[in-house]
Simulated assay, not measured.
Amino acid sequence: MIRIGHNPNTNMLPMFHFLQKEQPLLECAIAEPTGHNAMLAEGRIDMAPISAFSYGEHWREYAVLPNLSVSTKGRVGSILLFSKVPLETFEGLTVALSDASATSVNLTKILLHHYYGVHPHYVTMPANLKEMFEKAQAALLIGDAAIQAALLHPDCFIYDLGEEWFKHTGCSMTYAVWAFPKRLLAEQAAEIEKVYQLLLEAKAKALNHMEDIILECQRMLGGSFDFWKDYFAQFNYGLDLTYVMGLEKYLGLCYELNLLSSRPVLEFWPKE
């Protein structure tokens, strides 16, 4: 039995919608990215789409499944920084960070510190824009919470972090990778490979049946068919060399800015 993390946000539907959850090989645990980060580190699950930053924290212990990620090259649409003022004026102000993300929290710090040269104060809070704005001048939201906030609050500055990253680096951005502890290979390599094939099959089926994915998103959050079609057009769920280079750029900057204690090396399994 392989225990996997199941992320319920709409941006992960292409990975999970067609996954055969009834397979005796799988047991799913539903959580936001930070929940999966902790569960994998504590051994409560065996595999998950964890924050790319969390892989950077545990790169010596983890391996990454090839050809699976949540990435964009530019706009992402659901990792958004909401602000009462322009980014350039953030020096000394307070930014509220979502407690559901690790990758995006540190991407925010990279963009503000390294590229905009501003150093605000940070507080970590649950994803509620109204409450965040009561304590801070800006707020980072991810996933469905970000989509809903953008639809309800178009009257403030809204910065798309995927777009900001691409503007400053020219690189793609990988927000999540599928990872597992390398120690499992000693006894469960065959099971892990079977689950990997299930994930690849589920992804391929979803990408060939995006109408089904979009209809499910409309059922979950509303919105027009064209809105969701445009939203998913930004995403790449693979991890080819271009996206690996963008991921290495992000992890390298995390290390150089002392957000990570060591420079991560990506290790993939199964090797191709």
Rank of each mutant, 00 (worst) to 15 (best):
M220D: 05
M220V: 08
M220R: 15
L221E: 09
L221H: 11
G222S: 10
G223D: 05
G223R: 06
G223T: 05
S224F: 14
S224E: 12
F225R: 14
D226M: 08
D226R: 10
D226T: 11
F227H: 13
F227Y: 14
W228T: 07
W228Q: 03
W228F: 08
W228G: 02
W228R: 06
W228V: 07
K229T: 05
K229H: 09
Y231T: 03
Y231E: 02
Y231N: 02
F232W: 06
A233F: 07
Q234T: 12
F235N: 01
N236L: 07
N236C: 14
N236I: 12
N236E: 14
N236R: 13
Y237D: 11
L239Y: 10
L239F: 10
L239W: 09
D240Q: 12
D240H: 12
D240L: 09
D240A: 11
D240S: 12
D240R: 06
L241H: 13
L241D: 14
T242W: 03
Y243K: 13
Y243L: 14
V244R: 08
V244E: 14
V244T: 12
G246M: 06
G246L: 06
E248R: 09
E248H: 02
K249W: 00
K249N: 02
Y250R: 01
Y250E: 00
L251W: 01
L251M: 01
G252A: 09
G252C: 08
Y255I: 02
Y255H: 14
